[in-house]
Amino acid sequence: MNQTNQQILHYASIFLQSRGYNGFSYKDISQKLGIKNAAIHNYYPKKEDLVAALLEDSRKKITANFAQVVESGGTAREQLQSYFDYTLKEFDEGKCICPPGSIILDFEELPEKVQKQGLLLLDEILVWISTVLKTGLEQGEFNFSGSVDERAELVVGILIGTRQLSSIKGRKTLVTSIYLIKSDLGWKD
């Protein structure tokens, strides 16, 4: 991937995660890069191509990150903490909305390829968190009732919503929500 393409994806990610799908255009990206809109169209003929590629890239990166976390051999709590740390890092970088959350508002109106990549990304996150929660339950690191999959959906749902709320109320809201998620999971430090 060449440098221009990487920069296009970089700024598209920032705009998508701070403004949502309909909150930015190729003009926003071209102004940041000092290039013409046509240059972006050479890489991504339509906005849906750009956002689908961005979501696919996000999925590949997070999948690699999850694999690295698992390979590190950490406990379930350490693994889940790495996800919380990642969430806080993205928020601190100005990405107030997570990639799956950035397309939720307009989901039904989005092009099919964007919907598909968004769902694949969301499913990847849910499966990984479910696996971590199951391991944590089996090893006595967590203590909660109900199904692991439902709890994973709750964790992800809280983080998606809290990231948006935190964009207005500040980082402390996100930190507090992570603390409450831990408490709900029976996580005792």
Rank of each mutant, 00 (worst) to 15 (best):
F66R: 00
D106E: 15
N143Q: 12
G118W: 00
Q79T: 00
E109I: 08
F107V: 02
K61T: 12
I129N: 08
Q117M: 07
T75V: 00
V51P: 06
F66G: 00
E124D: 08
D184V: 14
L16A: 09
Y21R: 10
E78W: 01
K116V: 14
I35Y: 03
L165E: 02
D106S: 14
L119I: 14
A152D: 10
V51W: 01
T63M: 01
H10P: 06
K47Q: 13
G136T: 01
D106Q: 04
Q6W: 05
Q7F: 03
I125P: 08
R171T: 02
G170Q: 09
P45I: 00
A39E: 12
Y43K: 03
R151C: 15
G157P: 00
F24W: 02
E153Y: 15
A67R: 10
N65C: 11
L33S: 08
E150Y: 14
V156Y: 11
G101S: 08
A64M: 13
S177P: 05
V148C: 11
K188F: 04
S167A: 15
L54N: 03
I14E: 10
Q7W: 03
C98W: 07
L185F: 01
D106T: 06
T87D: 13
G23L: 02
N2K: 14
I40H: 04
N5D: 12
T63V: 15
E153M: 15
K46N: 08
D57C: 05
S130K: 04
T75G: 07
L9M: 14
L9H: 11
S13W: 03
L33I: 11
D184G: 15
E141F: 01
G186H: 05
K47R: 12
K113A: 05
K182P: 06
V155R: 01
G140S: 05
K27W: 11
F66H: 13
V155L: 12
S177L: 01
R151T: 15
I103W: 00
V70N: 05
L120C: 06
S82E: 12
L165Y: 08
I181A: 09
N2W: 11
E93G: 11
Y43F: 11
L120H: 09
T131H: 07
I8L: 06
F15I: 02
E141R: 00
L154Q: 15
L119W: 07
I40V: 02
Q6T: 09
S82V: 05
Y21E: 01
E138P: 09
Y43M: 08
K172E: 02
K169S: 07
S25C: 09
K32R: 14
R171V: 05
K47N: 09
L137I: 04
G170W: 01
A64T: 10
F24A: 02
L174Y: 04
C98R: 08
V69L: 07
L121M: 09
